[in-house]
Computed example of a mutant assay.
Amino acid sequence: MTEPDLKLNLPNWLGYIMTITGVTGFAGVILLYACQCKLIYPANYPEGSREEVAVPSDYGMNYIEETLRTRDGVHLKSYIILQPNEDEAKRRPTILYFHANAGNMGHRLPIAKQFYNRYKCNVVMLSYRGYGKSDGSPNEKGLKIDSQTMLDYVREHPILRTTPLVAYGQSIGGAVAIDLVSRNEDSFSGLMLENTFLSMPKVIPHVMPFLKYATFLCHQHWYSEKAIKNIVNTPILFLAGAKDELVPPSHMLRLKELSETRAGKVWASFPNGMHNNTCMQPGYFTAIQNYLSTHILKEELGERSGTGYPTTQQVEPKETEDEATVEAGYVDGQIVGEDKENNQSYQLVSGLADEKGQTHNFTVKEVYLDKDD
Rank of each mutant, 00 (worst) to 15 (best):
R69H: 06
T70D: 12
T70N: 14
R71D: 15
D72W: 04
D72G: 13
G73R: 15
G73Q: 14
G73K: 15
G73N: 15
V74K: 11
V74W: 06
H75P: 03
H75S: 15
H75G: 15
H75R: 15
H75M: 14
K77L: 02
K77P: 07
S78M: 12
S78L: 13
S78T: 15
S78A: 14
Y79F: 15
I80D: 05
L82I: 01
L82Q: 12
L82S: 14
Q83F: 11
Q83H: 12
P84R: 09
P84K: 08
E86H: 09
E86W: 00
E86S: 09
E86F: 00
D87E: 15
E88R: 14
A89Y: 10
K90W: 10
K90I: 00
R92M: 14
R92L: 00
R92N: 08
P93C: 00
T94R: 09
I95D: 02
I95H: 00
L96A: 11
F98D: 03
F98N: 02
F98V: 00
H99V: 01
H99S: 06
H99D: 05
A100F: 00
A100L: 08
A100Y: 05
N101M: 11
N101W: 12
A102Y: 01
A102G: 06
A102E: 06
G103Y: 03
G103D: 03
G103E: 03
N104V: 07
M105H: 07
M105K: 10
H107Y: 15
R108I: 05
L109M: 14
I111S: 09
I111P: 01
I111F: 07
I111N: 05
A112N: 01
A112C: 14
A112L: 03
K113G: 08
F115S: 03
F115D: 02
Y116R: 05
Y116E: 03
Y116K: 04
N117Q: 14
R118T: 02
R118E: 00
Y119W: 12
Y119S: 07
Y119F: 14
C121R: 01
C121N: 09
C121I: 06
N122K: 07
V123C: 08
